[in-house]
């Protein structure tokens, strides 16, 4: 979701016979619900897959600040502005918790940043869509954070200790994000005709990109089996997507808005909604870098990194100088 299509490294799912004794013992620990900690032995594939997944998740939090940051200076009231600032600051915090978790696996923060900046690592496809009106702040909080929560709640039980602990912190803070989004949507949906139209337009534009956040359909999701055995992926993409639709449709009805899907119908037999798949071709294009905002997002991150270089270097030089002076005085 915030991590889509994470390639798992290795030869695919191994049977117990194909595993080495160490791998068998490792899998047994995971099956018993034990947490794996950074200094424990782990298969190289587990380590690499987790770096990709946690790194992508962290990058998503950081890049995810951009579409919302776009509206901070134009929030309609001072209260809305303060709330949006707090939310965007939380996203920075969530990125930092996750980078720290990834670093325990032996990759450095700067390496991960550089891999984001030169396109070797990805972030969620959702942040390549523009936020055109204030109602989009509502739709992003309600739908995008709603979809994120759906994925992050089960990840609190993931097998890697630092990742699990980061997810617990993130989830504690995340429900504020969704509720503030829904609060904006309520206000707009109960407003005048123009405001209601803006809310509907935001839902129209964000519905399918939100469904894409869960990643490709299970039948096309080639990396799931190994990740699920390792408990770094807790549910399949389609399971989570279904859960999200079932939860969100009644909320849209409450708002008096229409989900932009003619095929949306309640299916009594499965106890959930039938709904249209998003346009997967569009999804793969966005992932490849051809979404509406890919270029802008990466340019903004690159500019921040380059413009901040003198600050990073200056502060390090200052810290060195202070240390040297203190040593000399002792």
């Amino acid at each position: 979701m915030y991590a889509q299509m994470v390639r798992s490294t290795g030869t695919g799912l191994k049977s117990a016979d194909e595993m080495s004794a160490k791998e068998r013992a490792f899998q047994a620990r995971i099956d018993a619900g034990e947490k794996i900690e950074p200094k424990d032995w782990m298969p190289e594939g587990y380590r690499k897959t987790l770096i990709r997944q946690i790194g992508q998740h962290a990058h998503s939090e950081i890049v995810g600040q951009l579409p919302e940051g776009n509206w901070i200076t134009r929030a309609p009231t001072l209260e809305r502005k303060a709330i949006l600032l707090a939310k965007v600051q939380d996203e920075a915090g969530h990125g930092l918790y996750l980078y720290c978790a990834a670093e325990t696996l032996g990759v450095s923060r700067d390496e991960m940043t550089e891999m984001l900046l030169d396109g070797r690592m990805k972030y969620s496809s959702i942040f390549n869509y523009p936020t055109l009106t204030w109602a989009d702040m509502g739709a992003v909080g309600w739908l995008v954070d709603g979809a994120a929560i759906m994925n992050q709640v089960p990840l609190q039980r993931t097998s890697f200790g630092p990742y699990s602990r980061a997810m617990i912190r993130v989830c504690k803070e995340e429900s504020f994000h969704q509720r503030q989004g829904f609060d904006i949507m309520m206000k707009m949906a109960q407003g005048n005709a123009q405001q209601k139209a803006m809310a509907q337009d935001a839902l129209n534009r964000f519905w399918y990109p939100a469904l894409m956040m869960f990643g490709p359909s299970d039948k096309d999701s080639v990396h799931s089996a190994q990740s699920m055995a390792w408990k770094i992926k807790m549910n399949t993409n389609d399971e989570l997507r279904q859960k999200f639709v079932d939860q969100t449709v009644p909320q849209a009805e409450y708002l008096g808005l229409t989900v932009p899907d003619e095929n949306l119908t309640w299916n009594e037999e499965k106890g959930g909604y039938d709904f249209s798949e998003p346009d997967w071709e569009e999804f793969f294009e966005v992932i490849k870098g051809n979404g509406p905002c890919n270029t802008d997002r990466l340019a903004a991150r690159n500019k921040a990194w380059d413009d901040g270089a003198w600050v990073r270097e200056g502060m390090m030089a200052h810290a060195e100088k202070k240390r040297a002076r203190k040593m000399a005085a002792e």
Partner: peptide, 23 residues
């Protein structure tokens, strides 16, 4: 509670305030 990067101890405390005690 976690970790973070900072050039020195003083900045580490300031950053920790922002990253780990927002609530």
């Amino acid at each position: 509670v976690g970790s973070l990067h900072a050039p020195d101890a003083e900045m580490a405390i300031k950053n920790a305030r922002d990253v780990y005690t927002r609530r």
